[in-house]
Every structure is written in C-alpha cells, then in structure tokens.
C-alpha cells in the first residue's frame, strides 16, 4: 500500500470533517438538551445548551404517560411497541417473501417465470406516495383499517430485496446444487440447509435497511390508523406538536423524539458493516 503524503495540509480534512460532524450532530444535541429541560427553561431565549437533571422526569413522563394537549398521545411505551411491531413484521415479512420468490425465480424453470419477476420488479415504480387514496380504499374494503395487519401487510412486498437475493442466488455454484441433488436433497431441503446459511450476510444487510424503512414509516400509518392507541411513534410525535391554539409540550415531545431515534440509530451503529453493504448492494 502506497502511503499518501500526510505531512502537508494534514489538518484541513479534519477541520472540514468536524464541520460535517457539527452539522450532523447539532440538531440531535439540541433535541437531547431540550428533552432534559423544564418547559420554562425551554421557553427562555436563548435556551441553555447543556442538559439538566429534569431529564429523568421528562423521560419518565414521556415513557409512561405521554403528552397532554389536544392530541392525547398514548405513552411512549405503547408507541414504541407499535413501531417495533410494524418494523419487525415489515422487515421479516419482506425478507421472507423476497427470499422465497427469488429462490423460485432462480432455481426453477416454469411458465410465466419472467412475467412474475417483472411484476415484482415493477412495484419499484409504485411507491405508497403515488397510490395513497386507492390503496387506502383497498385496505378499507378488506376491513384492515386500524389493525396491525393493515399497517404492515401492504408494505411487505419488496422488489429491492427480491432483486438483491436473486443477484446473490445466481452466484451460488452449480456444483452445490448438483451435490445436493446427488445426496437426494429436495429443493426445500437445499433452501434451508444451503441457501439460507449462505445468504446470512445478505440477510443481515437487508435487515438493517428494512428495519429502518419499517420503523420510519409515516404516511401509511398516518392514513391507516384513526385510533390513537395504534399510532406509531413517528406519527405520534408530529401529532403532539400543537398547531397554534395549544402550546406544545416541547420537553415531552423532545424526550419522545429521542426515544424514537434510539432503536434505528442503535441498529445502524451496531450493524454498520451490514448497513453499508445493504445500502450499496441494493441500490446498484
């Protein structure tokens, strides 16, 4: 490995990167500080820039009571639970249906194979945002409004995950398939004992991307739930912010915001390698 010349302008990259860190972290820091202050302290201008011990109370209130105000939010405990259910069902659902459909497309020949593959592929071009009303109508007709099924099922198809797994399955050597056949292993046996274990890193990569996708859903849960007790945390935070008539409980909103950030941030930090792989592999 050739070494680049580090003696010259060694400090400049660090300075610029620290500016980047500041831009990235400052909004998070302000939110964290606000989540630890009393309402009076937040209302003071300028707001103090270091956390206070009041935070313990704020988090306890947010977690077990929620915010008062026009929107009677459920406690963050409930909100986090709803978000977790949605994120996990969407993540595992997408991974499961994508794994088996990619397996079908790669390891079998059957009439309509490419047609079905294209059908899945085309869903890339139909994001929720462009079919808001009709999808809502379908979900109402199926009586899935205000249910976990309504929140998660419509999100479970995944063209990106199917494409990624298909890509990977095509690199599995033919010899492995032949060996399995000679040993008398059927297709499901081969799937369970060879394909799934080989796909571990790809599954982990998809897990990070899809968990964040599921956790951060906004428009869909906003449409599909009319009962507050089914709100996911991201939607609830928006609803907690007063529209003018009622003052906003900023200290509770900020504590709830921090609670809402923690799970996806933990996933991304803990699984950073998988995350980068998932991101760069699926989008290419």
């Amino acid at each position: 490995m050739a070494q680049v010349d580090y003696s010259r302008s060694n400090w400049l990259p660090h300075v610029i990167l620290w500016i980047g860190l500041f831009i990235t972290a400052f909004p998070l820091y302000v939110t964290f500080v606000a989540s630890t202050l009393t309402p009076t302290e937040i209302a003071q201008t300028p707001m103090q820039m270091y956390p206070s011990l009041q935070g313990v109370d704020n988090y306890a209130t947010a977690f077990s009571k929620g915010s008062a105000g026009t929107y009677l939010s459920p406690p963050a405990m409930t909100l986090l639970f709803n978000s977790l259910i949605v994120a996990l069902v969407v993540t595992f659902g997408k991974i499961a249906v994508s794994l088996i459909s990619a397996y079908a497309v790669v390891f079998f020949r059957f009439p309509g194979r490419m047609f079905f593959f294209w059908m899945i592929f085309i869903t890339l071009m139909l994001p929720v945002e462009v079919r808001i009303l009709p999808t809502y109508k379908v979900v109402t007709d199926l009586n899935l409004i205000n249910s976990y099924a309504g929140l998660t099922l419509p999100l479970i198809a995944s063209a990106t995950a199917t494409l990624l797994f298909r890509q990977f399955f095509m690199t599995i050597p033919d010899e492995l398939v032949e060996a399995a056949k000679i040993d008398g292993a059927g297709p499901m046996r081969f799937f369970k004992d060879v394909v799934i274990p080989l796909s571990r890193t790809n599954i982990a990569a998809m897990f990070v991307i899809l968990f964040i996708y599921g956790w951060n859903q906004y428009l869909w849960p906003l449409l599909i739930t009319t009962s507050n007790s089914l709100d996911v945390i991201v939607v609830a935070i928006k609803k907690m912010i007063g529209t003018g008539a009622e003052p906003t409980d900023w200290h509770i909103v900020m504590a709830t915001t921090i609670l809402a950030l923690i799970p996806p941030v933990l996933v991304i930090v803990a699984m950073q390698k998988s995350f980068v792989k998932g991101l760069t592999d699926t989008e290419k």
Binding site: L21, T31, Y218, I237, F275
Partner: peptide
Amino acid sequence: ILVLPYAIAPAVAGVL
C-alpha cells in the same frame, strides 16, 4: 456520526 441521519425518520428530522 456522518451516517446517523440516515437512520432518522423524515418526519422526525423535520421535528428537529
């Protein structure tokens, strides 16, 4: 640190 905002929901980023 630089990749953290990716994990944050658009609506939450809006609130920040």
